[in-house]
């Protein structure tokens, strides 16, 4: 039976159909989870897609963390369920305190829409399990607030515990330590700025994103 992948939809989310399509490509059954409902409906994994949740007013993710669905996502994460936040979803997870640090304006002060090379720097996360460290993936980024920032204590912790999951080969936005993705201490919650769902077919430039989404679905079984 296909695994159920919850795709959280806030007002202003705009990547949910791309994410659902990519999840179907790797054999999952996407289930949309409306932000106003405090349940994840028994899904196997949860994805928070990109967009501009609640208009990104105040700060990206600042209002979304108060949506009823986030309590259910936090409970799911606390029980070990795999949760991945992509782009705006990453911002929501940091604002909700499920991941440390924050995303600030790109150092270039530009909205950035380009394809970058990422290096897998830890295979110990829900998104990279089974993907050997050192693997290079070509995946698009598309954001304004994509520069990861945290204090030195958190950075030391992330490094020491190998919780930096993906790094940019060439840092596009001033992210601390070239960070493109991190995971929580439990390794089941991952946030990344790049969009794996937009690298889901060689026809559109790359299908490297599917490597990550496959790993995500395997995470629940393993």
């Amino acid at each position: 039976m296909a695994q159920k992948a919850g795709v959280v939809v806030f007002p202003g989310t705009n990547c949910e159909h791309d994410v659902a399509g990519a999840l179907r490509l790797v054999g999952a059954e996407p289930i949309f989870l409306w932000h106003g409902e405090a349940t994840v409906r028994g899904v196997d994994v949860v994805v928070l897609p990109g967009g501009f949740a609640h208009g990104d007013y105040l700060r990206p993710g600042a209002i979304a963390r108060f949506s009823p669905v986030m309590e259910a996502v936090a409970a799911f994460a606390a029980s070990g369920g795999p949760v991945v936040g992509i782009c705006n979803g990453f911002q929501v997870l940091t604002e909700a305190g499920l991941l440390p640090g924050a995303l600030q304006k790109n150092r270039t002060l530009r909205f950035m829409c380009t394809t970058v090379d990422l290096v897998v720097t830890s295979d110990r996360s829900a998104l990279t399990a089974g993907v050997p460290a050192g693997t290079t993936l070509r995946i698009p980024v598309n954001n304004f607030d994509g520069s990861y920032v945290c204090d030195d204590r958190v950075l030391d912790e992330l490094r020491a515990e190998e919780r930096i999951v993906l790094r940019y080969q060439e840092n596009p936005n001033g992210s601390v330590d070239d960070i493109a993705a991190i995971c929580n201490a439990g390794r089941n919650v991952v946030g990344l700025m790049p969009h794996p769902e937009r690298a889901s077919s060689k026809l559109i430039g790359s299908d490297d994103g599917l490597v990550l989404l496959r790993a995500l679905l395997a995470a629940r079984i393993g």
């Binding site: 600030q104 304006k105 790109n106 150092r107 270039t108 002060l109 520069s147 920032v149 001033g174």
Partner: peptide
């Protein structure tokens, strides 16, 4: 305001 030590490209540009 941004904390001291946090990159502030907007102010630098101004």
């Amino acid at each position: 305001r941004l904390r001291p030590g946090i990159a502030d490209p907007e102010s630098a540009t101004i």
